[in-house]
Each structure stands twice: as C-alpha cells, then as structure tokens.
Design a binder for these strands. Structure first.
Lengths: 202, 202
DNA sequence: GAAGATTGCGAGTGGTTGCTATCTATGTTA
DNA sequence: TAACATAGATAGCAACCACTCGCAATCTTC
C-alpha cells in the first residue's frame, strides 16, 4: 500500500522529526531516565529499528533533542523579544518573558537533559556547544532589545542577563519540590527594581 | 560469630544510617535513576532484604534521604554561619557560603531528588515538608546573621535570601552543561553589590 | 535458658532496559 | 526494468530492575 511518493530525504527527515518531537514530549512527561526508546518510539509511531537506523545510541538521540530544543527556545525568545513594545517598561516585559520561558514546557525537557548531563559524560559533551550557543545568542538578543542599558553596562550586561536567567532557573528547580507564588512575584519585583537601578546611569 | 553486643535499636539505626549514607553517595555518583537498590545495598554492605525491611519502597528510602540531606545541609549552614566574623564584609562571607553550599557534594544529591520529584509524585509529596522546613530555617538563620539588614527590609529580606539561593542553584544547573568561572565570579560581585545597595538605608 | 519478636540474608519473581540481527519495503540509479 | 542503496519492522538478547519470601541470626522477655 503506497500512501504517497516521497524522496528518501523526506522520509528520513520525517521520521527524525517525529522522533525528536516524541522524545521531547516524553522527556517532559516522564523525565530522562524513564524516556526509554520503547516509549519514545511508541509515541512517534515508529519502530525501534527505525530509531537506531538514525541514531547510534539513545544518548545520541538525546543530544539531538538538546540541539533541537535549544533552537526552539531561542526562536521563542527571538519572536517574543521582537513583540515587546519599546518604552519605559520594556525591562518589565523582558523579565516576564525570561520567567515564562524558564517555566515553559520546552524548558522542562532542557532541565532533564542538563541534570542527566551531570552524570552522563557523552550527553554533557554533546550538550556543551548547544549550551554555549544558546547562552551567547540570548545575550546578543538582549543587547538588541535593551541597547541603552547594554551600552552603559558594557560586559557587565551579559553577566546581568545570565544572572536573571539563573534566578528563574533556580526558582523553577525549587518549584519542583515546593511552590510559593507570592514569594516568586515579590522576587520578580525586587529583581526588576534592582536591575533598573543597576542599568540606570549613576 | 558474635562481633559485638548491640541492642535491636542500635542494629536498626546502624543499618538505616549505612543505607542513608550509601544512598546519598550513590545519588551523587550516578544520579537518581541509576541509584538502584542493588547498588545502594552493595555500597552499604547490606542485603536488599535488609533495605526493604526498613523502607517499604525505593521511593520511601529516597524521601528519607531527602530529610537526612536537608538536616545535614542546614547543620552545615548553621556551623559556618556562626563562624563568619561580624563586620563590614559579613555579607561577602555569607554570599560565598551560600555559593559554596550550593556547589557542595551534598547539594548535588538534593538536586537529583528535586529533579526526580518533578515526575515522581510520591517523592514530591514526601520532599515538600522537608523543602519548606529547609527554606524557613535558612531564612531564620540569615536573619540572625544579618539582623540590621533584616530589620530594615522586613519581609523583603526573606525574598532576598531566597533569590540569592535561587541564583546559585540556577548557576549550578547551568554548570552541569557549561562552566564559565569568570562569569560566575563577576556575577558574585555584581550580586553582592546589588544586595548591599538594597540592604543599606535609602 | 526457652519462647517470641525483630532484623538480616539471598535466591527467585515477572517485567523492562538498550541494542542487534534479519528481513521486507521503498526509493534511486543504470 | 534490473541492480543497488536506504529506510523501517520485527523478534530476540543478556542484563538489570524493584520487590517478595522463607529462613537464619540476633536480641528481648519471661
């Protein structure tokens, strides 16, 4: 039964895409350890043989998932950064954007990979360039959105951006065990105020 | 062959302690998923039957490990907080203490449990009270160490403490994939400056 | 010291794991 | 269209998983 005529490249890309998406969703649902090739393949509606045709090991698939997630998250940032209206409160919007992205579904998969990378050397090595690119690209984007503050702060600006992301990533990790929305909101305000103070000319 | 005369309670406590310590070390070494009962028991030099005599499931053991780690981390904070010399730079010392503790071996095990809690409901429920107590006790300790700032800031002080911890926890998670010591040090300085600014009277 | 309770042991349970080998189906090239 | 390359499916592998069970060792109580 022939459904449709496709080139080899199309077939290949199609199943790889299905596998990456299924792996990402499985990662979000059950975490790295329980994201078995069986589960991923079942979700992708593809056989295990197909998976191992395109990825030599499960870990290699996970590295590819990491690259894919990194690209998607960056794209997400790019789109929403552009949508932020320039003005006095663009910093507030930017802070909210970072927090929302850290809490996004997609980012949960990234946490799973990061954590697994701690104890899995291959994964760590594979994820490192992705992490670096992600880090740098976000700094570039932020400079584009807040050029005045960037110019004023110089290299400190990048550190500040990294710190804001670190705050919200840390917050999310805490939330895995214990949620405290009021404190989170208070933190967002304090943090915004502190950044505004640092970013303003002395 | 009788080695030593011990009460039942001593025997019991002894093997439980061995299991908790072995489980903690195994968590640090291979992560939550690979910390199997086999591995833990081998490390504790105790049979699997002994483990399941004291803990109904592996997850129950992990909750107990979480409680134990929480107590140890708090004790660590308590000791080192007391050692900080009061003076102009006590804030610097406190910040360094928080960062060091976040990077400590013991805290790696806590990250493993926190992350696993995201997808394991029982673990999350068991860890929640531990997390809450840990959170509150640290805030209390910090108020004791920095009474002036605490008085000046009111409830904001607790949020600030939580934020500092969040920064370093987030930093550690980033470091699992990508290390950047220079940025980390720059962040520590900026953060200390910002906190000092916030904590000083306006 | 006998009886009873608690604790520790280790073989065995069914189930899942990542991965391979073999085969068929589909697309490409001559 | 014949020969070949690529892609996908299926069954099966040894290793490991959390957990159970009957028994032996140890401690407590009388």
């Amino acid at each position: 039964m022939m459904i449709q005529r496709r080139t080899q490249a199309e077939r290949r890309e199609g199943t790889i895409r299905k596998l990456l998406d299924a792996a990402t969703e499985t990662l979000i649902d059950v975490g790295y350890a329980e994201a078995s090739v069986q589960r991923i393949c079942a979700r992708a509606e593809v056989s295990q043989g197909a998976l191992f045709r395109h990825f030599p090991t499960r870990e290699a698939l996970m590295v590819a998932v990491g690259e894919d997630i990194g690209a998607q998250l960056l794209e997400r940032y790019r789109e929403r950064f552009e949508d932020i209206p320039r003005g006095d409160d663009d910093l507030v919007h930017a802070m909210r954007l970072v927090r929302d992205t850290c809490r996004s579904r997609l980012n949960q998969a990234w946490y799973e990979l990061s954590m697994a990378a701690r104890t899995h050397e291959h994964l760590r090595n594979g994820l490192r360039p992705v992490g670096r690119r992600y880090h740098d690209d976000i700094a570039t984007l932020a400079r584009k959105l807040l050029p005045d503050a960037a110019a004023r702060l110089g290299p400190t600006f990048d550190v500040l951006v990294g710190t804001i992301i670190a705050v919200f990533d840390g917050e999310v990790v805490h939330r895995f065990v214990l949620e405290s929305p009021e404190e989170d909101d208070a933190r967002l305000e304090i943090l915004t105020g502190a950044v505004r103070m640092l970013a303003r000319p002395t």
